[in-house]
Design a protein around this nucleic acid. Sequence first.
DNA 1: TATGAATGAGAATTCATTCAT
DNA 2: AATGAATGAATTCTCATTCAT
Lengths: 205, 205, 205, 205
Amino acid sequence: MAQKTEQARTKSGAMQSRRAELLEISARLFAEQGVRATTVRHIADAAGILSGSLYHHFSSKEAIVDEVLREFLDGLFATYKEIVRQNAGPRDALERLVRASFQAIHDSRDQVAIYQDEIKHLQGIPRFDYLELRNREFRDMWIEVLEAGQASGAFRADLDPNLTYRFMRDTVWVAVRWYRPGGKVSQEEIADQYLRIVLDGLADD
Amino acid sequence: MAQKTEQARTKSGAMQSRRAELLEISARLFAEQGVRATTVRHIADAAGILSGSLYHHFSSKEAIVDEVLREFLDGLFATYKEIVRQNAGPRDALERLVRASFQAIHDSRDQVAIYQDEIKHLQGIPRFDYLELRNREFRDMWIEVLEAGQASGAFRADLDPNLTYRFMRDTVWVAVRWYRPGGKVSQEEIADQYLRIVLDGLADD
Amino acid sequence: MAQKTEQARTKSGAMQSRRAELLEISARLFAEQGVRATTVRHIADAAGILSGSLYHHFSSKEAIVDEVLREFLDGLFATYKEIVRQNAGPRDALERLVRASFQAIHDSRDQVAIYQDEIKHLQGIPRFDYLELRNREFRDMWIEVLEAGQASGAFRADLDPNLTYRFMRDTVWVAVRWYRPGGKVSQEEIADQYLRIVLDGLADD
Amino acid sequence: MAQKTEQARTKSGAMQSRRAELLEISARLFAEQGVRATTVRHIADAAGILSGSLYHHFSSKEAIVDEVLREFLDGLFATYKEIVRQNAGPRDALERLVRASFQAIHDSRDQVAIYQDEIKHLQGIPRFDYLELRNREFRDMWIEVLEAGQASGAFRADLDPNLTYRFMRDTVWVAVRWYRPGGKVSQEEIADQYLRIVLDGLADD
DNA sequence: TATGAATGAGAATTCATTCAT
DNA sequence: AATGAATGAATTCTCATTCAT
């Protein structure tokens, strides 16, 4: 969006914005129909060009997926890293990680959906090795927070941190399947309720 | 099951078992690689026949997916229905629904994985209308239990039942992505921890 | 039809009637959908058996077509031959050829339709060489009658017999496309009208 | 035709001519071997490209058949319409309809043959509904002429117009089966003889 | 940057036919 | 005579990619 203000200033600027536009279109289609089911012709049609012309911007369909995911994960990593760096205490940190994740679902629905739907099938392709790398980094940050919380007494000690991490991660990301921006429930409210359940439980005690 | 006794291994028994075998193979490949990425040749190769021969048993690839999912969902529906019918009180019912779901993940990993991965892309295909039907039935059962629990004071009243239902459903089913039968943590232990978090919360209070 | 009276007398009698039944079913399907579009499974389904079982009766699909056509053409040849043999004068002979043809359309609609639709694509297959043979025999008989009529002054002499033959032949046989037995117009009435048009034009008056 | 002038052989002209070329090749093969028996590979081979490349130009084999027939029928309709519009009297009109039809056989042999051979099997496919529509329009024009002729005394009144129409239509079109352009008998001579037979029979004399 | 024509590998599906039982 | 499972070749169609213009 931001780059559209300076859109046609220079040749490279124009190209940049065209790239960004094509990535956005691709991401939307990938999220809606799945990467495999989205043909380069779908993308080209949506962009108003012929499929062959896409190859002036990207070297392959895979490269488009790559760029979409890489950009998204780099941004998310920076966000998470900043939260952990601030070191605000385990409970606060956990809350912020959750809220940041729901924010990402809100801001980058397509990218989150693609990540969720495709990671299983992208694992093992060398080009996408960074997915597992990022995965590990994310996991380490969550577990760091969870273990710090168990050590400090903020979180119950009878839970396996690894299992709890998976629970948290899945709980949050899977919401992309039904969350609709602009719907009845805002992403902040969803985050609130999720945190209430996760931190305090369903049981009325 | 019944037809697997010696006496029943007659003509129709043999046919049944061949179909069942092919469905099992298909389910495994669909779960591993995705429906789209699994070609009928993959399935046929894994079954030791030629791809054309599959069409002696099933009318199309879609029909195989259909049969795999339909069988699974019918079984799950019966299980859920029985739990709700027993009317053991909201908290017990919720616990049993969760445990039954983890049991399904254990018993029918492939089917659950297929369901999770493909439902988004199967929605809207008339042949798979029953997916949404079952979805609604499942939701109604969960929400019935959750609302009964809020009414009886077993569950906190400050949570939106719909949101809570989604939370429960998603967190349970998404576990199929990483659960491995025969791994370090049994499905019963996972269910235990999940229930502890969900019912009592992460916070140490 | 006739053989159905003695249908199950002997084993070979039963087989004969089964063959006849299968030929009848095949002819109907071939006529309705075309030979190519009719699969052996269609035939088998219509006969209430499995497609493989057809091969106990016929060595191939082609053999079925062959038998259907050969039987029909042999019968028609005998009919034509008898008309020409009676030597009742050119105009009478022509009339009888036309009437016999409409009778054949009435009695053997399926066979006539198959012949009309498929002859073009069967020409050149050695097994069906007899089609061209019969064709030539039919043509020779018609032309014999036509030329006799021109010689005797019964028919106008300013028309090319070959062209006239084709005109007559086409005129008659193509009616199979729309003639429905039991419909408003009987095959005798159609023959009458056709003859009136054709003869009063052909006749030297 | 127009675009074949030098100036018009630009982009769209080239594309037009490529499409037209492929349609011509397809029509020839369809007419020779039947639509069903003509594979897209046959067409592609004859065009010197790979079969998949055909789909750059047409969305399916059916679409090719469609385009071939639609173009032909639209042209024929315009020709017939013009003849009827000129209102030259029934006998003249009939003569012109016959001559126009033989001209169509001469100019568009392949298309007429395809129409004759395939209409039976295309009826009922929604995409080809226009075939029946055109059929009705053609019939109405012929019958209009025939009835006007009976009313004016130009044609005998003792013949059923409907039956007579079928007679005319069938005898004319079926000639495509044996007419060879450049053969011994020109299409004008054939039309002459056909008209002599038909009219001197129809004429009220 | 874009077009338009083509490639080539592979997808699902069809179908006549075979054969052990 | 019939079944049921399979074959194997062919068919229509898809789609990422290339490349001359």
